[in-house]
Simulated scan of single mutants.
Amino acid sequence: MSEAFGFRAFGGPQVQEFFDRPDPVPEPAEVLIRVTAAGVNPLDHKLRSGVVPHFYGERPFPQVFGAEATGVVLAVGAEVEGLDVGDTVFGCAITGAGTYAGTTVLVGANTARKPAGLRDDWAATIPVAATSALNAVDQLDLPRGATVLINGVGGGVGLVTAQVAREQGLNVIGTGGTAKRTLAEAVGARFVDYTDGDVVDRVRALVPDGVDGLVDLVGGASLRTVAPLAREPGKVVSVADATVAELGGEMVRRRVDRADLERAAALMVEGRLDPYIVGTYPLARAAEALALVESGHALGKVVIDLTRGPGVGAAE
């Protein structure tokens, strides 16, 4: 048995709860891990809200929050290659298994060994946030010297996307609220404050002819406002809003295989990528961690550290 934090029905924060559950049994293509750290993402509260109930198939409630984790392998399915009991790994949980828990199961093909020198909490930010950034920039396939606009640059995915883009020789412009300026500029983005005048006019003041590519992390009206800034509609990709197709763009084609996990980990170990963790919470305070991300005011990435006691406060 292990403690877990999840939700008993689709809805708002009122459906969240702690509960004990038996350790999951890995299927042939899965590994069972003891979780040491779990990343917190907007996807977590969106799934709780029920906007994509089909993600859970026939799994009964309660569901466990979380999709990305680091941990130690306790058992390995018969079809999993390259991973052994005792390895420290990071990867993606199967939908519904969650990662805000003492133990969980990860998809073997979407799990990698954690390299020496990489902190557990940093590794826990890779499977969703860092691979989303890699996938988005790869999909745009822009030449060095091109300009990319990141709509929503100040969050966990946005900051990593800016760094990946800069690593590939791109010029970066990022939009966000006033509080996001310092971090955005720290990763080399030219920042446009969407609360300080017309965002389109302010971007065009920097690039009168528009941008070569656009990564949207916000969706909705914000996406529709900035999409015309891309010179080619096909060079607009979104991780947040499938209606980007109506604008001529595409959803980011997600690829969370072992190669991309290892690629992001190498960038971190080499000091070329920083997840900008701004809050670390023990499992007992998982509701606070999730509320911070759900508020939209997290200045970077939030992580749950399952090795910390309940009395330990969040790192600032």
Rank of each mutant, 00 (worst) to 15 (best):
T280L: 11
G77I: 06
V200C: 06
L306A: 07
R21G: 04
G249F: 04
V76L: 03
G50H: 12
V72R: 15
I150F: 00
E3P: 06
V244C: 09
E232C: 12
F191C: 12
Q63P: 03
V218L: 06
L247P: 05
I150A: 07
F5M: 13
P127V: 15
E294T: 09
T175H: 00
A78M: 07
G39E: 05
L118C: 14
Q168Y: 08
T111L: 12
L229G: 04
A287G: 13
G77K: 10
T147S: 01
V64Y: 10
R113C: 00
G313P: 06
A284N: 06
E246H: 01
V278N: 11
L283G: 09
V302G: 03
V72N: 08
S132Y: 09
T243E: 15
V157Y: 05
Q63E: 13
V237W: 04
V199H: 09
N135Y: 05
P22M: 11
T125H: 06
F55H: 07
A9P: 04
A245V: 15
D138T: 07
P60S: 09
L83N: 11
L47E: 07
V35S: 10
N135R: 04
V160H: 01
G197M: 10
G102N: 10
A4H: 14
A314R: 07
A162D: 01
V105I: 13
V80D: 08
R258W: 06
V236W: 08
P115W: 02
P26V: 02
P127E: 14
A284Q: 06
P24R: 10
V187R: 08
D87Y: 00
L292M: 08
R202Q: 14
L229I: 07
T195E: 13
V199E: 08
A284L: 08
A205R: 13
D23N: 12
D44V: 03
I33Y: 06
A93I: 00
Q168H: 12
D201R: 14
A136Q: 03
H297G: 02
L83D: 12
A242H: 09
V31M: 10
R263L: 11
V269Q: 11
V187Y: 02
V137P: 05
G311Q: 10
A186M: 07
G169E: 05
P275L: 11
V137A: 01
D201H: 03
D305H: 00
A109T: 05
T161R: 03
V64N: 13
A165M: 00
T147K: 02
V203I: 14
A78T: 14
G271I: 08
G220F: 03
L214G: 07
G102R: 09
L273E: 04
V148S: 06
K301Q: 10
V137M: 04
V244F: 03
E288I: 12
R113H: 13
A240P: 03
P53R: 03
L149H: 05
P228G: 04
G66Y: 11
E185R: 07
R21H: 04
G311W: 10
V76P: 02
D201E: 14
I94S: 08
L283T: 13
R258G: 05
V35E: 01
W122H: 15
P115H: 14
G296H: 11
E288A: 11
A136Y: 02
G96W: 00
T70L: 08
A179C: 01
A69R: 07
A29C: 05
L290N: 09
G6S: 11
D44L: 08
G156H: 01
K180E: 01
T95V: 14
A184V: 05
Q168M: 06
S295Y: 09
L170I: 02
